[in-house]
């Protein structure tokens, strides 16, 4: 993106150099006169440049605006002004610069020498008239600004190149699990047939990987993958509370009252009903989620019976972006 203006300038300079070389070999037919007043051309160019500035302003406003500030009116203002200036430039251009005169005359006899002369006149006159290049350059700039303004929000939808931050989490081995009021959770507190929300001790709870959902299942009913065999001491399992589909908080836990006849235990997201099986390590059993719920390995402190993390999350927490699918 940053290279584009440089390339435009380089191209313009290159052409100017070539033209200067062409003029050097002979005498001019058209005397090099005073630069004609540009007038309307300058107005159009200025409007186009303003449009480009507004497009760039949109990108800046979009980058500065956070969900906390909610200053979305600046986004609308920038994009609106960008389009308004573009429209104004088009109006001035069509009214003042487009030649709309019809002249009729017979087709002339071919005069190769005169044609060459006319070409030279045109070319040499053109060396003074910069309006085509000026307008092309300004138009290109305005187009680039508008394109950047429209593309920026789409590109910002989720990290594309730098997805490492999604894999970071506050959970490390030995980190204690605490409840909403920072009280450490004991293994004994976790009862079957219900669910709990826990956080890492002394960590920012607003981080997407912080909240976990805790359930206790019958240890004999667990079907965890072999490499997670010791992740659920006493049948206590911890999973990220953030759904892997659209990032809602998983707030539903269905538990069968009578296992032989009722649906099996599952964590359910209230937004689109993605349903995860805690017994198999958070596999998706229903719904639009594309990957399992990340699991947090647990250990029970042998001395205090407190619940602690035995390591980091099993995968990236939060909704799936283009860079995070598994």
């Amino acid at each position: 993106m940053r290279r584009l203006p440089v390339a435009v300038i380089a191209a313009l300079l290159g052409r100017r150099g070539r033209r200067a070389a062409a003029e050097a070999h002979g005498e001019r037919i058209v005397p090099e006169g005073e630069p004609a007043p540009l007038g309307a051309e300058l107005v159009v160019a200025a409007l186009l440049v303003l449009s480009a500035i507004c497009g760039a302003g949109f990108v800046v406003a979009f980058a500065v605006t956070t969900p906390a500030t909610h200053q979305t009116q600046y986004l609308g203002l920038a994009l609106g002004l960008c389009l308004t200036f573009l429209a104004a430039a088009a109006i001035v251009f069509s009214k003042r610069l487009v030649v709309d005169e019809d002249a009729e005359e017979d087709y002339p006899e071919p005069h190769p020498a005169e044609q060459a002369e006319v070409r030279e006149i045109v070319r040499e006159s053109g060396s003074r008239i910069t309006r085509k290049r000026l307008l092309l350059g300004a138009g290109g700039l305005a187009g680039a600004g508008l394109t950047a303004a429209l593309v920026a929000p789409a590109v910002s939808l989720g990290p594309v190149f730098d997805t490492d931050s999604l894999r970071s989490s506050p959970w490390t081995r030995g980190k204690r699990l605490v409840d909403e009021r920072e009280r450490p959770l004991l293994a004994y507190d976790i009862e079957p047939n219900t669910f709990y929300t826990a956080y890492p001790e002394h960590e920012d709870r607003d981080r997407i990987a912080s909240p976990v959902i805790l359930v206790r299942l019958d240890p004999n009913a667990l079907k965890l993958p072999a490499d997670r065999a010791d992740w659920a001491p006493d049948g206590i399992l911890a999973f990220s509370k953030i759904c892997t589909h659209a990032g809602c908080a998983i707030s539903m836990y269905r538990k069968p009252l009578f296992a032989p006849a009722d649906p099996r235990p599952a964590l359910v997201c209230p937004c689109h009903y993605s349903t995860f099986d805690p017994a198999t390590g958070g596999d998706v059993i229903f719904g639009p989620a594309g990957r399992p719920l990340p699991q947090l390995p647990l250990l029970i402190d042998p001395a205090t019976r407190e619940l602690k993390a035995a390591g980091g999350m099993s995968g990236p927490v939060g909704p799936s972006w283009s860079g995070v699918r598994e």
Partner: peptide, 13 residues
């Protein structure tokens, strides 16, 4: 009591 699929909320919760 937590009927059917509803979780049971004890007086600790």
């Amino acid at each position: 009591a937590g009927p059917y699929l509803m979780p049971i909320f004890s007086d600790k919760q």
